[in-house]
Computed example of a mutant assay.
Amino acid sequence: MSVDSIDGLGALRGVWDTLAAQADNPSLCEGYPYCELAASIAFEQRMAVRVLLLREGHDLVALWPFVIERRALLRVARRLTCGAREEYGQPLVKLGVGDDIWPALMTALKRLDADLVEVSRVANGTRLQAALDTAPQSRAHRLLPSSKRGHPGYAIGLRGFASFVEFENASLSSRFRQVLRKCRRRLEQLGPVESGWCDTPEETTRLLGWIIEQKRAWAAARSIENEYLEDDRIVAFFSRLAQRLDLSKTPLVAFLKVDGLPVAASLNMVGGQTLEGGVTTYDPAFGEYSVGSLHLYDLLKWAHARGLDFDLRPVHVDYKERWATHRSWHETRELLITARGRLVDVAHLHNYAQRGARKLLRETVRRMRPAAKAPEAAKAAQPGK
């Protein structure tokens, strides 16, 4: 279905909400408010929006929204995004539908007016992955080793535990729990400690700004480049989303405060049976108190009390390895819809060559530095020098 305006998308609101209520663990990213905001941004940038609808009789059983963007000579269809392009790319699918839905969705994908369809962060071993792998895909992308094509995913299966204490005993070492208790006691000596969620759009925006500034400082200190941290897309998007949501039911930003000031905070997404972690950070001045771990611990207690699992999302970070009870593997699939789509292989090979050249240059410089310093060191070691 071609959507030319927000009003056109709004015509789907009723069936969209109904399907989300019937879907298997839908993410906030798959819900109408999130996609409506992402679509409005796409329209502002003069990009086309398409929504694939699949029905069985009169019942809508699957819905898959895309934006079509231009990348050089290619028309690329990808998931509606907040700007960071880190959303899972799966469709919204009614719980209990049969396997025949997946070939039908693949047929619908091939009718998109695009040369290439990009489906991000697809979990291996799922029905979606099996269906996507029946379609022609980028050969150059497949040349990369698996470790370069995707990321490990981490999750904490809280719903499998009758009580939070049961989760702690099964998943966290007694020493780690002892360290957390000690850190909290020390933190409480600095002032009142408060853990909770922003309950107004204004407070959400303020804490979002704090999160991004902390992340920018963290990245700069480590010479890490991250596109979404370089501008204000995240803050702008989720600030606008906070205006659309009932934050008492679907909160976005959680915090840990000491004496009224944030020391750790995170952007999260509540949907279906999952609390999905987004951007997490803390004030390094409070690092010795393990405020990041204390903040995550409080989030897990909150999630368990509401019957939610916790998705730490793909990309390896040491703390995820320590907390996770489930691990998975996620890769982005690039489906070739037209012959022109093969041009993506040229782009990939060009990027690989550039990366290889940069790596070779760094290695050459690294090897030359000791050789350049050796004569100077020998000269300095001579008597009388």
Rank of each mutant, 00 (worst) to 15 (best):
K385M: 01
T281E: 08
H316M: 07
S293I: 06
D7V: 15
P65S: 01
K257V: 05
T325S: 08
A285S: 08
A371F: 12
K379A: 14
A155N: 00
A38F: 00
R367W: 09
Q45C: 04
Y352S: 07
R222T: 01
L300V: 00
Y352E: 09
L343C: 15
H151R: 08
A377G: 07
G89P: 03
R181I: 04
L128M: 13
N351V: 02
S147M: 08
A140D: 04
L180Y: 12
K110Y: 11
G157I: 00
L245K: 07
W197H: 08
A62R: 05
S146I: 05
V365M: 13
C183K: 15
L180P: 02
T81W: 06
R240P: 06
T134N: 05
H151I: 00
S248V: 06
R142Y: 10
A285K: 10
A339Y: 06
D283V: 05
M47D: 14
D246L: 03
A221K: 11
Y282G: 10
Y297V: 01
M47V: 03
A372S: 07
F176R: 14
D59A: 13
R111I: 03
L207W: 11
R206H: 04
T205I: 00
K94R: 14
A130Q: 12
L28A: 10
E30D: 11
L312G: 09
V61R: 02
V263A: 11
E288R: 15
G384A: 04
A140S: 14
K215T: 04
S290D: 09
S174V: 04
L294R: 04
A217K: 11
Q178E: 12
L60W: 14
G278Q: 01
H316Q: 07
K373I: 05
L349P: 00
F167V: 02
R46D: 12
D232A: 14
T204P: 06
R184M: 01
A254Y: 04
E86L: 13
A236N: 13
A20L: 11
R222E: 02
L19W: 13
R79V: 05
E87Q: 09
M1T: 01
A21Q: 09
R75G: 00
T18W: 05
Q178K: 13
